[in-house]
Simulated scan of single mutants.
Amino acid sequence: MNRLSTAWGDVALARYPEDPRETLRAWDAADEYLLRRLAEDDMRASLPSPPAAPTGSLVVLGDRWGALTVSLAAYGPVQITDSFLGQSATRAALARNGVEETAVRMLSARDTPPARIDVLLVRVPKSLALLEDQLHRLAPAVHADTVIIGTGMVTEIHTSTLKLFERIIGPTRTSLAVRKARLIFCTPDTSIPRTAGPWPLRYALPDDAGTPGGRPGVIVNHAGIFCADRLDIGTRFFLKNLPARHDAERVVDLGCGNGVIGTAVALANPRAEVTFVDESFSAVASAEATYRENVDSDAPAAFLIADGVSGIADGSVDLVLNNPPFHSHRATTDTTARRMFEGARRVLRPGGELWVVGNRHLGYHVRLRRLFGNCEVMASDPKFVVLRAVRS
């Protein structure tokens, strides 16, 4: 845990879940730059008077670990995020800093946004599609006097980012870079038509993807989901090498994304009960939509927005399927994969199996062998490997 110094006092922050081995901070130079700008006299005047409860007039979009929301808690902000872990980090930070959770209103990226926004702060996400979707959703609440400031590292703010702000909200400019971070200033143009965004997208799965009995026909993707308009090559490889199972069993699609893997399992084995789990609200919404498009509505399935398998009972699962991410925003890290593997081992029954697909160079076999005591290569090509570990 570290302390972020702001004009409103020091704030104790940590990523979620808090891990003493974690070396990454819960904020970066982009968060600091925005908070410093808000503390300047001309900007302080634009902030709402500290309310007794959130009003919706100050909206923080895409706050990663709660640094912006908690620092500005006195102004009753509404936090909008697609991340369950981001929400959880914010709740933990509020408690850690002695702030009542009711001081902040938390919404997911799928929730209805506030009807009026006077100040909009945007932490630019990695996904341009997610930014597009959220700007479309928030634009009707913006008025001519709304103050809009975005922030991000210079590697995150591109010409396409600025064009999105300009096309959906209004004229946009950027600040000078400070410590490799920039601010975005956008002036609302209420003459721009407020149209709905293009999301979710639907596309047909290629004929050569997956086995005939387990090939979903249509994939549904809300904004922000990895490879939203096509099947990524890692998932394609996994689909071709999924275990052939026919017994009644409980299967978890861990880090489900758009749900194509779990849906393929449900189609290939109608006796399976599949649970789709992801920390992204949009991912779980995509997975449920994909499942409903392809599987009989009476087939048993569950959809969980959670920190890994935290909502699943120990020793209750027969099979876990996992394509773990190896990035946390801009940072490359195996922390998420490690926690997914540990959680999978906990929920698997004795004899239960974890199947993992990953890039060969990530070396997941070493960690799996250390954790499970075994690891077998089930399939490989020059780029990817499918591994199986069995809980003894």
Rank of each mutant, 00 (worst) to 15 (best):
L120D: 04
V122C: 10
V124K: 02
P125S: 10
P125A: 12
P125K: 04
E132R: 15
E132F: 03
L135E: 01
R137L: 09
A139I: 02
V142K: 09
V142N: 04
V142M: 05
T146V: 06
I148T: 03
I148K: 08
I149C: 11
T151V: 09
G152F: 07
V154L: 13
I157V: 15
I157T: 05
H158G: 00
L162A: 08
I168D: 00
I168N: 03
G170W: 06
G170R: 11
T174K: 15
S175N: 09
S175T: 11
S175Q: 06
L176P: 06
A177F: 05
R179M: 02
K180G: 07
R182T: 01
R182W: 08
R182D: 02
F185S: 00
P188A: 07
P188K: 11
T190F: 08
I192C: 08
R194K: 15
T195K: 14
T195W: 00
G197F: 12
G197Q: 13
D207N: 09
D208F: 13
A209G: 01
P212C: 10
G213I: 05
G213K: 07
G214H: 04
R215Q: 12
G217F: 06
V218F: 02
I219V: 15
G224Y: 01
G224P: 04
I225L: 14
R230I: 03
I233H: 11
F237K: 00
F238R: 01
L239Y: 09
P243N: 06
R245D: 03
H246I: 02
D247I: 00
E249F: 01
E249Q: 14
